[in-house]
Design a protein around this nucleic acid. Sequence first.
DNA 1: CGGGCGATCTGGTCATACCACTTGACCACC
DNA 2: GGTGGTCAAGTGGTATGACCAGATCGCCCG
Lengths: 242, 242
Amino acid sequence: MPLQPVTRRSVPDEVFDQVLAEVVDGEIEAGEALPSERRLAEVLGVSRPAVREALQRMAQTRLLDVRHGGATTVRDFRRFGGLDLLPRLLVRKGDLDTAVARSILEARLVVGPGVAALAAERGGPALEALLTDTVDALGATDDGVEQQLHALTFWDQVVDAADSMVFRLMFNSLRAAYEPALVALAPLMAEEVGQVGAYRLLTSAIGAGDPETVRAAADRVLRPATTSLLTALAALTSQESP
Amino acid sequence: MPLQPVTRRSVPDEVFDQVLAEVVDGEIEAGEALPSERRLAEVLGVSRPAVREALQRMAQTRLLDVRHGGATTVRDFRRFGGLDLLPRLLVRKGDLDTAVARSILEARLVVGPGVAALAAERGGPALEALLTDTVDALGATDDGVEQQLHALTFWDQVVDAADSMVFRLMFNSLRAAYEPALVALAPLMAEEVGQVGAYRLLTSAIGAGDPETVRAAADRVLRPATTSLLTALAALTSQESP
DNA sequence: CGGGCGATCTGGTCATACCACTTGACCACC
DNA sequence: GGTGGTCAAGTGGTATGACCAGATCGCCCG
């Protein structure tokens, strides 16, 4: 096993994760009050500032409602949580949440073609050249992880060209959720990132600039893996429910 | 003027906003180092824990890179920022960023129909009844703000029915950015939320369940206001650039 | 000249004290 | 009976000062 960097988790990190787990795994219902900072500090065996820092970070992500003088209460993460919660929701209590995984695949299929269409409107020949280089690099390797990285670069360039702050920020959040799992996902994504031809078609469609053609080409890149993974997920789900 | 709750901003909040402004408004370039916590505390006239809390919150949103023993450096928010940054990017240095506003409108137009189509696949008659009630309420008022709230409820129910965690989280972030500006946006959104007929068509299309019809109906709800606002934004932009 | 060591930066953590706010109970006073 | 006032207790908010731990860099010795 290759040596890997030691991870040093700070005390507030630890507290944050524990509280987050309580909230996300439903140990504490929305609306319920958390123990006081002093009490938490005592129970967890850490200082109050450490607890405080963790709780404030939770509040920042709209998962807690901290009120001066009053109790700190839990908010409904399903109603207030942001995209950054995604990695934490994808794996709950140690298991993959298939419904969440499904939603990621579906969202990709909706957003990807839309972004590509926008990019095509604004990219010009410079974009096509850039993407061609990336696809060349993608085609030049057989390593699943490297292929995924090139594919990520491809979409990164597309998002850039789309010149859309909203899609850029969405992409950032999704990438942040995706990258840590990249190695584990290599076998699952092989079907998609191995299709160099589909990427080439999408690239030239973007260069040509017709939105509908681009949408179709982007769909062709994303759909095959999406379909087979959705099928696999459905099998998993029916298997675990009975 | 109606009385409104007094807002008390905490010290860490204040620090957070100041540092965020430095980063987002480009006063500190990506990669540059921030002053040390002690120095910041001194300069801002607050305690170190207060500074610390603010910086940790910045780090949580991937805007800073805090390393034990080393300097705290600024990250490129364009590459790492999440959707929660949106409201802060929409208004930069006191002015509306038209490019960001444009991207919001475009994203709506891409995502809205996609979500509606998913909802149609999964909603069933119960959803149609729910949406009908909401549209009835929308049609029953002439107040622009109330209309927007009903429209927001409408989409909230659509997102719920789509049963997609990713779209749910996206919607949460977008709503969090949208709601505070709701009153100011009333005149701009009047064109959209006043079209009760379009909402009715979308509702029955969702009830019928054909994805393509739903997409078209959702587009019909969103496009008119999108187009006119995009035109208005374009005029604003050309006016400010020369 | 190169490697090692230590001074001195940085952030990480803690204990403690006190301030500010909310809540609810209690108690006059209409 | 309700209104408003008062107060104590509990909660979060802030500050201070101390010390721990990792990173950095320059000096000095081999």
